[in-house]
């Protein structure tokens, strides 16, 4: 939610209109949560139609695959290799095949980057910085309607003072990992 608002704010700074859609309610109890962010001129609703998204940032592997129909054929995916195994799997009511999911992503997405998000978050020093690492990674892509600094500045508006340093670090880790440094 913070990540989607930060993206929206950065786009607004550059004179674009924005729409985001957040998921609130029962789904927040260990369910899958998806946010849509749209920016541009002459926007309609907040929900992105199928095959219209430019970027897909996935913090959990199976949920990334679930959201894939939203992506444009030429769109980019940044996918965490992290998995959150739902209780249904522990109870034997469902299955979770990490390898098959990764293979599927490799096969059907043109521009794909995998991030070992669990490790990166550990390096950032706070368990809840996964989304910030993701934003850092996204910020390295060309053609975004805002600069890296603008995105970071927008993000920090949503972060309490004492967590700023950690978030800056997480953002930079995201950038550097994408740039292969």
């Amino acid at each position: 939610m913070m990540a989607s608002r930060a993206l929206a704010l950065a786009a607004m700074e550059n004179g674009l209109s924005v729409r985001t859609s957040e998921v609130i309610g029962m789904a927040q109890r260990e369910g899958a949560v998806t946010s849509h962010v749209r920016m541009g001129h002459d926007l309609s609703g907040a929900i992105i139609p199928d095959r219209e998204a430019d970027f897909l940032l996935g913090l959990e592997l199976s949920e990334t695959v679930r959201a894939l129909p939203k992506l444009k054929p030429e769109g980019s995916v940044i996918a965490a290799t992290s998995t959150i195994i739902p209780v249904s799997v522990h109870l034997g009511l469902a299955e979770y095949n990490q390898e098959a999911l990764m293979d599927y992503l490799k096969k059907y997405t043109g521009k794909l980057s995998f991030l070992a998000l669990d490790d990166l978050v550990r390096r950032a020093g706070h368990p809840k910085t996964g989304n910030v690492v993701m934003l850092g990674a996204l910020a390295t892509f060309p053609g975004l309607p805002f600069s890296r600094e603008q995105l970071l500045t927008s993000l920090l508006k949503y972060v309490p003072e004492k967590l700023k340093a950690i978030n800056i670090r997480a953002f930079e880790i995201g950038c550097k990992t994408m740039e292969g440094a």
């Binding site: 029962m26 789904a27 109890r29 260990e30 199976s62 195994i85 009511l93 299955e95 999911l101």
Partner: peptide, 13 residues
């Protein structure tokens, strides 16, 4: 879209 592998049920708990 092509058929993805089986995705785990993720109902809220």
């Amino acid at each position: 879209a092509t058929q993805p592998p089986v995705l785990p049920l993720r109902t809220p708990v």
